[in-house]
Amino acid sequence: MMSKKRLGKGLGALISDKKPEGNSSEKGIQKVKVNKIEPNPYQPRKEFNQKRLEELSQSIKKHGLLQPVTLRSKEDNSYQLIAGERRWRAAKLSGLDEITAIIQDCSQQQMMEIALIENLQREDLDPIEEAKAYNKLIDKFDLTQSKVAESVGKSRSSIANSLRLLNLPSEIQDYVSRETLTVGHARALLSLSTNAEQKEVAKEVIENNLSVRETEKLVKNLTTDKKREKKKKSKKRDPNIVAIEDRLRRSLGTEVSVKRGKDKGEIIIEYYSDEELTRLLEFLEG
């Protein structure tokens, strides 16, 4: 497992808490009114545990906010969170009027990367939130999977496997988010060819409390059975066509196959020498 210290560029590489040189009063560490702060629009985390927020709120009441949040200033003199939304929410809950903040210049892409890395380091995201965050980075900034992997310090295959979860029906994605199914279960279900099959097997897995290994075995059996059935159907031929082929073989004295399509078909007559071709032509010309 990759060490958290190596995750991505590191927040330190994307966020600096040093005050800028010069007389800019808009940058560096300062006190900011809580009600002038709005959340990060690229925050990948959708759910905040209320109990943990209340616990953090009580800690802030007692000890104050020990770690500043990071903001970027907007043209209307308000601020937008770059990192620290949980701390900001808890500070609001505790009744603080203002909090300490680091003010930074930051692009939209950096905001998204920072929010994602911060949550990954804290292990705050469920697998679907994580996959959606990667997908949003790719779509909004036209990034490759390799570039996203570089940004967050993971392998490209890890990003690709995460994104594959978004191919599952939303119902199964919800199971993964709520930890009703694990990522291992979800990856096994991806081997099934239709959403209907995936939903059906997912319900069976949940009802029978199947392990990941048992789920993989179930999926393998289903796909094997399906292949056998398909092969069996392809071998089964229309008896009328078979009878016609037999009649033509007897009449022509050579191998004949008839293939019938939706709107047209073809008759294939085999010959094995020039003399036989001449014989067949004479026969067909009457």
Rank of each mutant, 00 (worst) to 15 (best):
R249C: 03
K33R: 15
S3A: 07
S59W: 06
E38V: 14
K62M: 05
L125S: 13
Y42A: 03
E282K: 15
L7R: 15
A188D: 10
N221Q: 00
Y175S: 02
S94E: 06
T224F: 07
R72L: 12
V152Y: 06
Y42Q: 01
S94G: 04
P68Y: 08
D97V: 15
E229P: 00
S24C: 09
N49Y: 11
V176E: 04
S157M: 11
N240I: 13
H63F: 13
L218S: 01
I244T: 05
E113N: 09
L137Y: 00
L284E: 00
P239G: 10
Q50W: 02
E266G: 14
I29P: 00
T215C: 08
L210F: 11
F141K: 01
A160F: 10
N195H: 13
Q110P: 02
V152Q: 10
V69P: 02
S170A: 13
K199M: 14
E266V: 04
S191Q: 05
L168A: 05
K62L: 09
N167Y: 06
V34H: 00
S234T: 04
R52Y: 03
P20R: 07
K230H: 02
T278D: 09
E123P: 13
I128P: 05
L11G: 12
I172P: 02
Y79P: 13
D124L: 13
L277I: 01
S251W: 01
N49P: 10
K36M: 10
A243F: 07
E275S: 13
R52D: 04
K36I: 00
V183H: 01
E55K: 09
I269T: 06
S59D: 12
R87A: 06
K235Y: 03
L192E: 07
L14P: 02
K31W: 11
H185V: 11
Q30D: 06
C106G: 02
N40Y: 04
Q121H: 06
E282S: 10
D105I: 08
K236I: 11
L166H: 12
K74C: 15
K262M: 07
L252S: 07
V183C: 06
Q43P: 00
E179N: 12
S234L: 03
Q80K: 07
K9Y: 14
S107F: 10
L218R: 05
A149C: 04
Q109I: 09
L143C: 07
I269N: 04
L65K: 05
M2C: 01
E216R: 03
D238W: 01
R87H: 04
G12S: 14
R89P: 10
I268M: 12
N135T: 00
L168D: 03
E229N: 00
E207A: 14
R87P: 03
Y272L: 12
E200Q: 14
S107L: 12
N240G: 02
S151G: 10
E26L: 12
L116S: 11
R89G: 02
D246K: 13
L7Y: 14
S25M: 10
I269Q: 02
D105L: 14
A13I: 05
